[in-house]
């Protein structure tokens, strides 16, 4: 086999590997197995399985559920599928100031343990949507930022 022909064979093999791996990934259920977080419904479905290890819960901060104590730095809130969810909500307890954008109706991902009643979070992350909007009339994002900075000092 000439060197040029040899390279063509190598190309075919390499491209087949690429096609094979991509086909495998798109057809297999790797989508179900590779999970970054569970939403509240999935977490409740898992039952006992969810109580064994450190897990991540993702959802939306329920309206009027935030209880922040600046003295003790205790932060309690509820996470549901939607901001007004009533049934399938999970109560989260965490300690420490949350990220600046943390607020009602915001997407969050929390890391910690769930004991069936309370999700004890070691880390609260805020999930941003893919929407980028200018402030509406009267909204002052810079002002929000300033008040948060004051809270920190």
């Amino acid at each position: 086999m000439s060197p040029a022909r040899q390279k063509q064979v190598i190309a075919v093999v390499a491209l087949s590997v690429v096609a094979g791996v991509l086909a495998f990934i798109s057809l297999s259920d790797i989508e179900d197995n590779l999970v970054y977080y569970w939403d509240p419904v999935q977490l409740l479905e898992k039952g006992e399985l969810a109580k064994k290890a450190t897990i991540r819960l993702g959802g939306v901060v329920r309206k009027e559920s935030i209880d922040w104590n600046p003295e003790t730095l205790k932060l309690h809130f509820k996470v549901g599928m939607t901001p007004n969810e009533k049934e399938e909500v999970i109560t989260v307890h965490s300690v420490g100031a949350p990220p600046q954008m943390f607020q009602e109706g915001m997407g969050v991902v929390v890391e910690g343990q769930y004991d069936g009643q309370i999700f004890k979070s070691e880390r609260v992350m805020v999930k941003h949507s893919n929407e980028y909007r200018a402030p509406k009339d009267g909204e002052r994002p810079q002002e929000i930022y300033k008040t948060l900075l004051q809270n920190e000092t």
Partner: peptide, 8 residues
């Protein structure tokens, strides 16, 4: 403009 949620 700045962004509603994230500011600058």
């Amino acid at each position: 403009p700045t962004e509603r949620m994230m500011g600058d």
